[in-house]
């Protein structure tokens, strides 16, 4: 990823015979990128999936009006009957254990998923950019210390440590988010540091430095824009992965309390209903299938998007 083109440095090689040469190179670049993106069917699927989820999250109060305005994340339930009931007019996706409405949980769970994914990835990205650029640009003792700390984090299997940390901090969605922030930043820090190490040696950085540009300006104006694509691609895929890990932790019984609108929590509730009574062994399929399917779709959307973005932005792949 060391030679990701930015608008200024590509004008020379960017003469596309379909475009008039007089066009601004940044515009040519943008048109080219969009064209490539649209050409790839997988990226369109990914984009559509994420857009649909975004709309669901935005319009959640209309799609599934909450019973209690103050606490919309509480899934309403009809009585306390233990065994789930199949999809009906009242409950389009059926109900879970204790008659929690699956449809409501899915709709409001979309908000939870975005909340988990965005908050974790955004905070990690900020930490990663700050620590990574300092470590990569200045090197020295600070670099050494930060890299040894990330080494330690890398030396531990993620989910296993996350489990222990969630137990230590006390169960709940809040803890899961905190834990994933604690464990997630080394990935970004390392990546940005690596990018900066290669870019730092480029001639145009030397030129900027020679002309007396301040360090901060060099990092923000000249280095970060060049490494931003690769980082954003990983970030996009990590939004899905974060939701997946959170759901896995919830599945193991470390997530939100029963009845909270969170997909992982809903999957963990279905564990007792995998196999139905002997005469109808798939009687409770909807309890198992629907929440997990929604998680898979959400993650798939982000992965497709990230995958397509990589193909589009990677200069090595793009002009073949």
């Amino acid at each position: 990823m060391n030679s990701v083109n930015n608008e200024n440095s590509t004008s020379a090689i960017n003469v596309d015979y379909e475009q008039p040469v007089s066009q601004h190179p940044a515009l040519t670049e943008a048109i080219f990128t969009v064209k490539r993106f649209i050409k790839n069917p997988l990226s369109i699927i990914g984009l559509t999936i994420i857009l649909v989820f975004t709309l669901i999250a935005i319009f959640a109060p209309f799609l599934a009006p909450p019973e209690n305005e103050r606490d919309p994340y509480r899934i309403p339930h009809d009585g306390w009957t233990i065994s789930p009931s199949p999809p009906s007019a009242d409950h389009p996706f059926g109900t879970m254990e204790q008659q929690y409405d699956i449809f409501y949980g899915i709709i409001w769970g979309t908000r939870s998923a975005f909340k988990i994914g965005f908050s974790v990835v955004l905070i990690n990205l900020i930490i990663g950019v700050i620590l990574g650029s300092i470590a990569g640009y200045y090197g020295g003792l600070f670099d050494e210390i930060i890299m040894r700390i990330t080494d330690m984090f890398y030396a531990l299997p993620f989910l296993v440590v996350a489990m222990a940390l969630v137990v230590a901090l006390g169960r709940g969605l809040q803890s899961i988010i905190i834990v994933m922030i604690i464990l997630g930043w080394p990935t970004y820090t390392r990546m940005i540091r690596g990018d900066i190490l290669t870019i730092r040696e480029k001639d145009y950085i030397l030129a900027a430095r020679a002309s007396g540009t301040s360090d901060l300006k060099i990092i923000i104006r000249h280095i970060l824009p060049n490494s931003v694509y690769s980082v954003l691609i990983v970030a996009s895929m990590n939004i899905g992965a974060t939701v997946l890990t959170a759901a896995a932790l919830s599945f193991l019984g470390l997530g939100a309390e029963t009845g909270y609108a969170d997909w992982g929590q809903m999957v963990s509730m279905c564990r007792n209903w995998i196999v139905g009574p002997p005469d109808a062994r798939l009687a409770y399929w909807y309890v198992v299938f629907i929440p997990g399917f929604v998680i898979a779709l959400f993650v798939l959307g982000w992965n497709l998007l990230g995958d397509a973005a990589r193909d589009v932005f990677d200069p090595k792949m793009r002009r073949k």
Binding site: L244, A247, V267, I274, F289, I295
Partner: peptide, 25 residues
């Protein structure tokens, strides 16, 4: 591959179990 790393481990496991053990026994 994309499906492989998008599918939640637990969900695939549950589906396998539901299909093979639940349906086919």
């Amino acid at each position: 591959a994309i499906v492989g790393y998008s599918l939640p481990t637990f969900w695939l496991g549950l589906m396998l179990m539901m299909f093979f053990y639940g349906l086919l026994g």
